[in-house]
Design a protein around this nucleic acid. Structure first.
Lengths: 211, 211, 211, 211
DNA sequence: CTATAATCGAGACGGTACGTCTTGTCTTAGG
DNA sequence: CCTAAGACAAGACGTACCGTCTCGATTATAG
C-alpha cells in the first residue's frame, strides 16, 4: 500500500500488525470524527502505536486516509448477473453501498478535494481506488461482448474515450446522488439510471454522428 | 447570504463592505492555498478585517467557503441556444468553466465532504449552490416543452424524479470528469455526453417500462 | 475624584448616578473576581452603563480601581481613645479592618504593583489613599503633644522624616501581616506592635545618635 | 521549582536549559514591560521556546513570575557584621536592593495581589520567597544569642510569635518605603529603622507587660 | 422654541493575547 | 533498525477584552 521501495535488511523489521491496526483505527476515526477532525495523534493512540511509527509509513493525513478508504474497495466484484443491464445495476449498487458507509463518505470526498492541489495524491487515488473500479467497467464490456450484447470495438482510441465517459457518468451520478443530493441509491434508481445510460449508448452507437 | 434573521436596531450597524472584502479574500486564499491550508486568521488579514468580525458573521470555515464559492455561481445563466441539446451543452460547459477555477475546485469538494457530517452545511450548499443550478435544468425543460422538443409532463411526481435523476447525471458527470479523472470538459466531451443523455431519455420515455 | 478639569457648560451633563453605580459595581466585581479577572466591560454591565460612559470618565482599569478602593478609606477616623498607644492601636485596627475586605486586598496591592511603572498612578494612590492615612498619623502626634505624651518637634525636617518612617512602619507591618503572612491583625497583635513601636521611638528620641 | 512530583521514565526528557531560559526571559520581560503587560507568548519567544513548553511547566503567569522573582532571592545572605544592629541593617539593605530591581518591584507586588485570591499561589510565595528571608531573621537571632546580645528564648511559642512580628515589621517597612512611598532605602534610613526596632524590642522584653 | 452640543444605550470595529490543539521532528530507553 | 513514550518548535484555533467608533435617542443650555 504505502511505498516500500527499498528493503532494509538489517535492524528490527517493521511490525506488520501495526499497518492493519493503523488503517483500522483510521477508518474508526473517520466514522466517529470525519475527515476534518481526524488527527494523526488520535489515530496512533487508537491503534496503540507511537506517532513515529505512523509517520515512518505514511507521509501525512491524506495518504493515510486514501489507503484506509481504498481497502473498502477490495470487496468490489463483478458477479455475472446474466445481462449487461443487470451487471451495471449490480456495480452501481455495490459502489453506492460503499459510499453509504460513513468512513468512505467523509474520507473519499475530502481526499478528492485535496487532490485538486496535489498531483501525487490524485495519482494515488487513481491507482488505489479509481482504477479498481474502472477495471469492472472493462470487464463488464468484455462480458457483454462475449454475450453478443455489444459489438467488438473497432477503434481502440474511440473505445477508450467511451469507457472514460461511461465511467465518469456512472461514478459521477452515484456520488452526486449520494453525497450532494443526499438521496439513497436504491434498486429503482439504479434501474432508471441504467436504462437511460444503455439506451443512450445504444442510440449513440447506432447513428453515430448524423442523428 | 449569512444569517441575518433578527434586526438589532441599536448599536453600530455591521459594515457592508466587510462582507464583500471577506468573501473576496476567501476566494483569493482558496486559489493560493486551497481549502485545507486556508486559515480564517489569514482571510481576516487579507480582508483587512479583525478575526472577530469574521466570526461574528460566519460560524466557521465551512460556511464561509460555501458562501464564497456560491457567489461564483451567480453568473450561471441559460442562454437560448436554439435546441435542447445546445442548451444542455451550454450548461455543461458553463458549469465546467466554474469548476475549472481553482477557488471552486478546492472549496466545493471539501465543503461537500464536510457536509457528509453536517446537515446544516448540506442544506446551505443545497440552497446557495445546488438549487441555483437545478433551476437551470427546470428552465431548460420548460423551454424545450415550449419548442415542442419535449412533451408536457403528465405525472408531476414522476417528472420531479426525472429532473433529479438528470441533475445527478449532469452535475455528477461533470464533477467526476473534472476533479477525479482530471480531464478537461471541452466542447467534444460535452457533445458526446449530451448525445447519450438525450438519446437515453428519449428511448426511456418512448418505451417506458417494457423495453 | 476623576479628572474634571474643564467644565463644558453646554450639552447634556454627565449623570451623577453613573459615577456611584460604576464605583459600586467595581467593588462588587473586585470581590467576586479579583483585580486580574475584573474587566471594564463587565463593570459597565453590572453598573447598567455603556462602556463609553465608563471610558469617558476613567482612563483605564487602574484609575477606576484606585478610585473605587479609595472610597473605602473615607470611613477612616481618629477617635480619641485617651492615650497615644490606644490611638495607634485604634488606627492599626481600623486600617486592618479595611484591608480585610476582599475588594481592598486584591485591588490595593495590584494598584501598587502597577504604580511601580506608572508615576501618575502612584500619585493618584498617594493623593486619594496614602495621604488620607498619613493625616491620621499627623493628627495623632498633635493630640499626643497636646496631652504631653510627646514633646513639640524642634527640627521640622527631622520631624517630617520621622513621620514618614513611622508611617512606613505602621502601614507596612499591617499590610505585610495581612497580605503576605496572611495572619489576622487582632487586638493582641496591635498591642504588641504598638508597644515595640512606642518604646523604640521613646528610646530613640532619648539618646538620639550616640547610644 | 515547579512541580516535578512524578518521574515519567519514558519519552524525551524535559530540557533543563529551557527552564533557565524561560525564567531569564521572564525577568527580562518584567523589566521591559512590567507584570500587567507581560505575556506568556512574548516570554516564550524571548526564551526561544514554544508556548506549549512553557505551559507544560507552569500553570500560568502568576506561578511563572513567582519562580522568576524567587531566583533573585537566592543571593540573600547574612554576613556576620559584628553586631545585631549591623546584621539587621545589612539584611534591610540587601532586601531593599532586591526590591529596587524593576523585575522584582513589579512582579512581587502583583504576585502578592493575586495571592489574595489563590491560596496555592500564596503558599508558593511563602515557600520560595518569604521563608527564605525568614530564615535570615532566625539566623540573626541565633548569632545574637551566641554573641550574648540576646537572651536564649524561654517560651518557644512566644519566641515564634516575636519572630513573625519582627519579620512583618522589617519586610513590611522596607516594602512600603520602597513601593508605596517610593523613597530609597539608604543607609541612613536603615540605621534609623533598626535603632527604633531594637530599642523597642529591648524595652518590650525588659518590662514585658506592665509598662 | 428651536438649534446646538455633549451625553446616553448599544453594539460593531481592528487588535492583541489567551490557553489549547495539532503537526511533524527529535530524543530518550528498550527490543 | 524499529518501537513506545513523550518533549519539542511552530503555528492555527475560537474566545475574551481592549479601547475606539458609529449609531439613534436623550437632555441640557443658548439663542
Amino acid at each position: 500500500m504505502q511505498c516500500r521501495t527499498s528493503a532494509p535488511r538489517t535492524g528490527r523489521p517493521r511490525s506488520a500488525a501495526a499497518d492493519a491496526a493503523i488503517l483500522a483505527a483510521t477508518r474508526e476515526a473517520l466514522v466517529e470524527l470525519g475527515w476534518s477532525k481526524l488527527t494523526l495523534g488520535d489515530v496512533a493512540t487508537r491503534a496503540g502505536v507511537a506517532k513515529t511509527t505512523l509517520y515512518r509509513r505514511w507521509a501525512g493525513k491524506n495518504e493515510l486516509v486514501v489507503d484506509a478508504v481504498a481497502e473498502l474497495f477490495d470487496e468490489l466484484e463483478l458477479p455475472d448477473l446474466g445481462s449487461l443491464a443487470a451487471d451495471i445495476e449490480g456495480v452501481v449498487l455495490q459502489f453506492a453501498a460503499i459510499l453509504a458507509r460513513p468512513e468512505a463518505r467523509s474520507g473519499l470526498m475530502a481526499a478528492v478535494a485535496e487532490s485538486t492541489r496535489d498531483d501525487a495524491l490524485r495519482e494515488r487515488i487513481r491507482a488505489s481506488i479509481v482504477d479498481r473500479q474502472k477495471r469492472l467497467v472493462l470487464a463488464g464490456r468484455s462480458r457483454a461482448q462475449a454475450r453478443g450484447e455489444l459489438p467488438p470495438e473497432e477503434d481502440a482510441q474511440e473505445a477508450a474515450r467511451t469507457v472514460d465517459l461511461i465511467f465518469d457518468m456512472v461514478a459521477g451520478a452515484v456520488v452526486h446522488r449520494t453525497l450532494v443530493s443526499a438521496e439513497p441509491v436504491d434498486a429503482a434508481w439504479a434501474q432508471s439510471f441504467t436504462r437511460i445510460l444503455l439506451l443512450g449508448l445504444a442510440g449513440a452507437s447506432a447513428g453515430p454522428h448524423g442523428a
